[in-house]
Amino acid sequence: MRIFLLPMLLGIALPVSAALNIFACTPEWGALATELGGDKVNVYTATTALQDPHRIEARPSLIARARSADLIVCTGAELEIGWLPLVQTQSGNPRVQVGQTGYFEAANQVPLLEKPARLDRSMGDVHPTGNPHVHLDPRNIARIAAALGERMAKLNPGEATHFGARTKSFLERWRAASARWEKEAAPLKGMPLVVYHRNLTYLIHWLGMREVAALEPKPGLPPTTAHLSELLAGLRQNPAKAVVRAAYNDPRAAEWLAERAGIPSVLVPFTVGGTETARDLFGLYDDTLARLLAAVK
């Protein structure tokens, strides 16, 4: 009796089936793991779309969740460097340490853009291995999905066919959707944008848009009035079509500049959960494109 009572008292999620416990650092990887795993995975997402992924703390709840995780799925490329190493070492869980099968870095599966030629903090908070915000290019999602599906099968060989079939089905639907998005997004080609942080680089690269400027004077530094005035002057010579920011970015600077430059300020969900419509990965891209297309009209 006591054996059953204790876990109940402590609120342990007893493994009903041998479902894989997945700890996703950011919502996009949580959504992807759910797509590939279905009911054979329990996915916990550590952050929301309204939180700046650069500024997460190693909260006690994260350590508790990492303790029981079979797989940690994160972006990598040092996006989570401020908190994940602590969560991993404090969790007392050897399966999810760096280098183990239970630790998956999405950025390792794709070519990274903007690898800095020179590393110096006077350049702001740069990521040495390149821009880590890889999830806004659907081709990256496809690569990462293939690798993640494989990893899940490796961790739970009993469900390998299940994960394999779901991955295949996801990739098929994803390729079809990607083709549709590329067609729909044709009017966005060459569209000049002002971004908040350089977190839309892969989207811009994929759709052939142009990043004219960033509201942050240097990566990671909050926008300053001096920098915004400079941007405004620059936009007179070199106009942009919109000021685009992620759901978690502070709206004030974007609104300020958009209003004075006479261009729309566009909020994009950035990741799953960033807007009402961006409920899954497909919704994320649908909504992102719809919002950008509305601005270009």
Binding site: L10, I12, R65, S68
Partner: peptide, 12 residues
Amino acid sequence: LKWVAPTELFVE
């Protein structure tokens, strides 16, 4: 020696 409980509530 530290032990983290396998619970959703963080217990150390």
